[in-house]
Design a protein around this nucleic acid. Structure first.
Ligand SMILES: [Mn+2]
Ligand SMILES: [Mn+2]
Ligand SMILES: [Zn+2]
Ligand SMILES: [Zn+2]
Lengths: 147, 147
DNA sequence: ATCCTAAAGGGAAATCATTTCGTTTTGCGC
DNA sequence: GCGCAAAACGAAATGATTTCCCTTTAGGAT
């Protein structure tokens, strides 16, 4: 039930998604991966396990799982899609991504929620969502650079 | 020199960009716009002023100006490009965007910089940049919805 | 165990925002 | 004014992502 042993059956059931071999494989691969993956990279890994699997299947599943909050998207300067296994049910949090090795680390505290109140008080309106992502070098990559 | 009367000549000179009529028009249109624009929308406006202007010219200029920090990009769920006039020289800050009318408002305080220190202390590594964007409804759109 | 049906997958093709390319024009320092 | 690098043109290419239509499958009901 932790990051490397989540209960995929329950997760999919709650989302109303059928538990198919490919869907499960997508979750397994993502959950085992310390960094974010592109749909195409995931597809290459999947093709080693399945005789036939289409790229549209990968896109479709990633989209559904992201909508369901089981995986999260990464914002990349190249504006391509990247996904990371991180369920929303772990509570609201954000991510630090290493631009060198792609590793993703959780940032448990959310800096925005604390100030939402005063922002609304000042500007009016309503905040429905927010995006926070820290980019940089993880400790390993930083050590490699400065070594 | 405020938002609606910036010194485009100086800005472009500092960036080492020539002051062409089209480049100036792009800045003027963006600076007069309260919300974010797509390259294509900007192009349509520009075509009213110039007999010929290519979409690649718009993309190229937007890219250069964003690289130079004169305009900033908006993160949109549809993953298309949107730009907003907001110079980096105004100091580090972030934006609240109205998902209904596209209005952009500055958020002067940065919630992330305060916590960067402890994040690094905990995880190691180095933070090189961060993304923060608040999405919601501006006061006008909220009033319209609830009226 | 078999049926049934909506959901899922396959694969080829389309989409279309964005970029590239080769050529022509233009800003601007001298 | 000259010269040249930067800028703009426009047609064409690119390629990540989506659409389409047909086939297969998961899983609840009989
Ligand atoms: Mn996470
Ligand atoms: Mn701003
Ligand atoms: Zn948050
Ligand atoms: Zn900030």
């Amino acid at each position: 039930m932790n990051r490397h042993n989540p209960d995929f059956s329950s997760i999919l059931k709650e989302l109303g998604l059928k538990e198919t071999p490919k869907r499960r494989a997508i979750l397994e691969i993502l959950a085992a991966e310390p960094g974010f993956l592109s749909p195409e990279e995931l597809w290459r890994t999947l093709k080693a396990r399945f005789a036939t699997i289409g790229l549209p299947t990968v896109y479709r599943n990633l989209g559904e799982l992201a909508d369901g909050g089981v995986i999260s998207t990464i914002i990349h300067p190249n504006r391509h899609l990247y996904y990371y296994f991180c369920t929303r049910v772990n509570g609201h949090h954000h991510h630090f991504i290493c631009t060198s090795c792609r590793r993703v680390e959780d940032i448990p505290e959310c800096s925005v929620s604390a100030m939402e109140g005063e922002i609304i008080a000042r500007n009016g309106g309503a905040i429905t969502s927010h995006i926070v992502q820290l980019n940089g070098l993880c400790s390993d990559c930083l050590a490699g650079v400065t070594e």
